[in-house]
Simulated assay, not measured.
Amino acid sequence: MKEYKKYFTLGGSPEDIYNCLTNPVMIEIWTGEPAVMPKEPGGEFSMWDGAICGKIISYEPNKQIEQLWYFGEDETSLVTIKLHPHKKGTSVEVKQQSIPEDAYDNIAEGWDEDYFGALEELFEI
């Protein structure tokens, strides 16, 4: 199993970024796909037509999101997204643990290009 950790800087405030990561209407705007994102921890979420799905572990409004991503029937991966105020907007720390070896390159590329690439376009600095 592998781990992914990276920082991204986005031009929006932590409140704006948090809203884009937790509000299904906003998620649909930056992904172009319908999303399911529960308001309360314990609920299951889905993005990119089910390409990413899992369970919400916890929310700390405008600061942190913890999710459990599903890989197949028995494998899961813990994702932690932390938001920090930054002079240019928000520094986003992403950490994903227990990534299956054969999925790592695809996951890393997805974070860089699809997930934060789309958010960077929305919040250009």
Rank of each mutant, 00 (worst) to 15 (best):
47 M>E: 02
19 N>A: 14
38 P>R: 04
55 K>C: 06
91 S>C: 15
78 L>C: 02
53 C>W: 08
121 E>M: 12
44 E>M: 09
76 T>P: 01
16 D>A: 14
45 F>N: 05
70 Y>T: 11
109 E>P: 01
10 L>W: 03
43 G>D: 01
83 L>Y: 13
35 A>V: 04
81 I>M: 05
16 D>R: 06
59 Y>M: 02
124 E>M: 13
125 I>Y: 12
63 K>W: 04
3 E>D: 12
50 G>A: 06
112 D>S: 11
107 I>L: 14
125 I>P: 14
17 I>N: 03
125 I>N: 12
115 Y>T: 04
91 S>A: 15
103 A>H: 09
98 S>L: 10
9 T>E: 15
3 E>M: 13
24 P>V: 01
14 P>R: 01
14 P>E: 06
25 V>N: 09
82 K>W: 05
62 N>C: 08
26 M>N: 10
86 H>I: 07
44 E>V: 04
28 E>L: 07
117 G>I: 07
7 Y>S: 14
109 E>G: 09
66 E>R: 03
125 I>C: 10
118 A>R: 10
27 I>E: 02
20 C>S: 13
115 Y>F: 14
92 V>D: 02
34 P>G: 05
122 L>R: 11
35 A>G: 08
13 S>M: 08
95 K>Q: 13
99 I>F: 03
46 S>L: 05
54 G>S: 07
73 E>Y: 05
119 L>H: 00
10 L>D: 00
15 E>T: 13
12 G>W: 00
113 E>P: 04
75 E>A: 14
91 S>R: 15
48 W>M: 11
108 A>N: 03
33 E>Q: 12
2 K>R: 14
84 H>M: 11
36 V>F: 07
102 D>N: 15
37 M>V: 00
82 K>G: 04
64 Q>Y: 07
46 S>A: 12
67 Q>N: 08
52 I>V: 14
58 S>K: 04
92 V>R: 04
76 T>K: 11
4 Y>E: 05
110 G>C: 08
96 Q>C: 08
64 Q>K: 15
29 I>D: 10
87 K>G: 12
89 G>I: 06
34 P>E: 07
27 I>G: 01
4 Y>W: 09
43 G>N: 02
70 Y>S: 10
61 P>S: 07
51 A>L: 11
100 P>W: 03
83 L>P: 07
5 K>G: 12
82 K>M: 11
61 P>H: 05
119 L>R: 01
91 S>L: 15
2 K>H: 10
103 A>N: 11
